Computed example of a mutant assay.
Amino acid sequence: MADIKEETDEKPDFQLKRVAYKGVAMFECEIDEIEKMETREDDIWVCSFSRSGTTMTQELTYLVQTLDFETANRVYLDDRFPILEVKDDRFPYYRGVTFAEQMKSPRMIKSHLHHSMLPVQLQKGKGRIIYIARNPKDIATSFYRLMKWTGGLNESDNTFEKFVDAFVNGTGHNCPWPRHVLEFWERRNDKNVLFLKYEEVVRDKPKAVRRIADFLGRTLTDDDVAKICDYCSVDKMKNNPMCNMSYWRDYKKVYDNADGGFINQGKAGAWKSLLTPEIAKKIEKLLDEIQGSGLTFDDE
């Protein structure tokens, strides 16, 4: 995968600041406030390791809960379903804990934090969690493409080989991946946790919608399910400014010519046409680390 050099606009070029907390590389945030924040019984949290199908899961969840397509069509997903652990005044939708605390119930909140870093009350069951997991081979390609598009790479991961090395050795953003997925997998039978696999969701989206509806106690008609699945098709989401992050172009330089973007192919197994056998084998080590847990991923 080619590296990027060329610019696409004259907006300022900046990165979200990276920090390490409890051995995890992450963006600078209010982690101390997050861990002690009050949660609510009717909270709905969509959690994931980055690039695991989070945006799709958020939009599916929002529509299952509200059936409010009109609002979905006019209000940014980052406003309806904000990420908690990114706070940066240079972006209008990265507002951190205070904004989440002021949201009306039922709140819908996104997080890429490990389970052990979530609010303690949420960890103990106060609030509902929908977790989406994905084959790490697809995560690696999708995550690198996103970071190229946003100009978020630095000297430690500015080639795909370096990026994969950091992903595999546990020093990359949100890593280590095995620890992330296993923390949630071990809670999969908790009554407040729904554990989804990306590959299963995209294979049978109507079934996934019904699982989310059952988890949230919502009753949907077959027509409701069909409308939600159509709205959340990859082609529509890719061209939907309410969820494709195109607003980033208003605030910072992005690299549209960099073979990357926020929403890419939206399918399982895209890695097969993108990874060399050597790199695929290297990422296999992450799957080896979860062997024996019962968690497996299809190599579609």
Rank of each mutant, 00 (worst) to 15 (best):
70 E>H: 08
83 I>Q: 05
36 K>P: 08
46 V>E: 07
99 F>Y: 08
101 E>R: 14
72 A>Y: 04
38 E>T: 14
58 Q>T: 06
66 T>C: 10
74 R>E: 09
79 D>T: 13
73 N>Y: 04
102 Q>K: 05
35 E>P: 06
38 E>S: 15
89 D>G: 08
89 D>P: 07
89 D>A: 07
52 S>H: 05
64 V>P: 04
93 Y>P: 07
104 K>L: 03
40 R>T: 04
80 R>W: 08
50 S>E: 12
40 R>W: 06
47 C>I: 05
88 D>R: 07
82 P>W: 10
82 P>D: 08
65 Q>A: 15
30 E>P: 07
64 V>N: 06
34 I>H: 03
41 E>T: 12
84 L>A: 09
82 P>V: 09
52 S>E: 05
68 D>W: 03
83 I>N: 01
91 F>M: 15
54 T>V: 01
81 F>N: 03
67 L>R: 12
35 E>F: 11
93 Y>G: 05
61 T>F: 07
105 S>H: 03
49 F>M: 06
89 D>C: 06
33 E>C: 06
91 F>Y: 13
88 D>G: 06
39 T>Y: 07
50 S>N: 12
59 E>Y: 00
56 M>T: 01
84 L>V: 05
30 E>Y: 10
66 T>I: 09
87 K>L: 13
73 N>R: 10
105 S>V: 00
73 N>V: 02
86 V>G: 08
34 I>S: 02
86 V>L: 15
78 D>K: 05
43 D>L: 09
86 V>A: 14
76 Y>P: 12
79 D>C: 11
71 T>E: 10
52 S>K: 07
68 D>M: 09
86 V>T: 15
38 E>W: 12
63 L>Y: 12
75 V>Y: 03
42 D>S: 09
49 F>W: 05
50 S>R: 13
87 K>Y: 09
68 D>A: 06
88 D>Q: 07
105 S>Q: 08
31 I>F: 15
100 A>M: 09
50 S>A: 15
97 V>T: 10
82 P>T: 10
58 Q>L: 13
92 P>H: 15
80 R>A: 08
37 M>D: 04
76 Y>D: 14
30 E>A: 11
104 K>Q: 03
41 E>A: 13
34 I>Q: 01
54 T>H: 00
69 F>S: 04
31 I>R: 11
83 I>R: 02
41 E>H: 11
90 R>Y: 01
32 D>L: 11
40 R>Y: 05
69 F>R: 03
92 P>F: 15
94 Y>A: 14
36 K>Y: 11
53 G>M: 05
65 Q>G: 11
93 Y>N: 10
57 T>F: 00
54 T>Q: 00
99 F>G: 01
78 D>S: 07
40 R>V: 03
48 S>V: 12
33 E>M: 04
31 I>Q: 14
47 C>Y: 02
88 D>E: 04
57 T>I: 05
104 K>P: 02
87 K>W: 10
44 I>S: 11
